[in-house]
């Protein structure tokens, strides 16, 4: 067993959220530059120029990329040989979020009882934590400050098995077209296919944590990703939906076996400010 103290986890989570809020990852910047270079709409290009200039300014002057510093979504891959000491993993993550959002001057957007009190918790806790047990003695943390604009455009359905690939494409296109400018295109569209209802949405969320433009290792899934990206961009929404040829930077698909009666499909959208950072302890 390898001991990892909760303080180390908290410090890492705090650092990753501050980093994520200010520094757009290289893969995202590269994808935005490609979009700017290929964009056919002059207004769409102007929007992409402003987005790229924003990324430079945010990093150089330590101003958050976006005022919506999100729900704090944290993916933890915990090696089975790791022993977390000094407290619980959940507390460690939440302490890190509180520290990062307070010391980093990030916006605290979490409110209590969603349908009544809605009182701000004051430090953006609690985090939404996805824990996965993996082999080994390492602890891997991915942080995602997930903005409301794109998260609120999530969709989930259970198609009939016979609707197949065509049904999936039409569902994804409807979700993107109806979301229009709300989720801040150009998007990374996460698509989960299979599993159970809740697991399907988790797959869609996991899909957007991949490096932008990376392909699913399965050839059929990768082909579906290319097909969906081409179709999403043919919608013509463009950057911020002002019209254009770059509605999405990428479509990422993740699949899982499912029940004989079902074809679950979930869409989780990521705005162009795809602020995901990771570290390994």
């Amino acid at each position: 067993m390898r001991d990892i103290h909760i303080d180390q986890i908290s410090e890492t989570v705090a650092r990753l959220f501050i980093d994520a809020a200010h520094n757009l990852p290289d893969d995202v910047v590269a994808a935005l530059e490609r979009a700017r270079d290929s964009e056919e709409s002059p207004l769409g290009r102007q929007v992409l120029e402003e987005i790229l200039e924003n990324a430079k300014l945010a990093s150089a002057e330590m101003i958050p990329l976006c005022q919506d510093t999100g729900t704090s979504v944290v993916f933890v891959e915990l090696g089975q040989e790791v022993h977390v000491v000094g407290g619980t993993l959940e507390d460690a993550v939440n302490r890190g979020v509180a520290k990062g959002y307070t010391e980093g001057y990030l916006r605290k957007s979490m409110v209590t009882q969603p349908f009544s009190a809605r009182k701000n918790t004051g430090d953006n806790t609690p985090a939404v934590i996805h824990l996965e047990l993996v082999p080994g003695d390492r602890l891997r943390i991915k942080t995602m400050p997930k903005g409301g604009g794109c998260e609120n455009m999530s969709r989930m359905t259970i198609l009939l098995p016979g609707q197949g690939r065509e049904g999936i494409a039409n569902f994804v296109l409807r979700a993107v077209e109806e979301a229009s400018g709300n989720p801040c295109p150009p998007l990374v569209v996460g698509v989960g296919i299979g599993g159970s209802a809740e697991y399907c949405m988790a797959l869609a969320k996991k899909a957007i944590t991949r490096r932008v433009g990376s392909s699913n290792p399965d050839a059929e899934n990768a082909d579906l990703e290319r097909d969906l990206l081409e179709k999403v961009n043919a919608l013509g929404l463009g950057p911020q939906a002002v019209g254009g040829t770059n509605t999405a930077l990428a479509v990422h698909v993740e699949t899982f076996p499912t029940h004989i009666t079902a074809l679950p499909v979930a869409v989780n959208m990521q705005c162009h400010s795809a602020r995901i950072k990771e570290a390994e302890l």
Binding site: N54, L57, P64, C66, Q240, V242, H272
Partner: peptide, 9 residues
């Protein structure tokens, strides 16, 4: 419309 996600700019 102001460009969403350009809070720093």
């Amino acid at each position: 419309l102001a460009v969403g996600g350009t809070g720093a700019l």
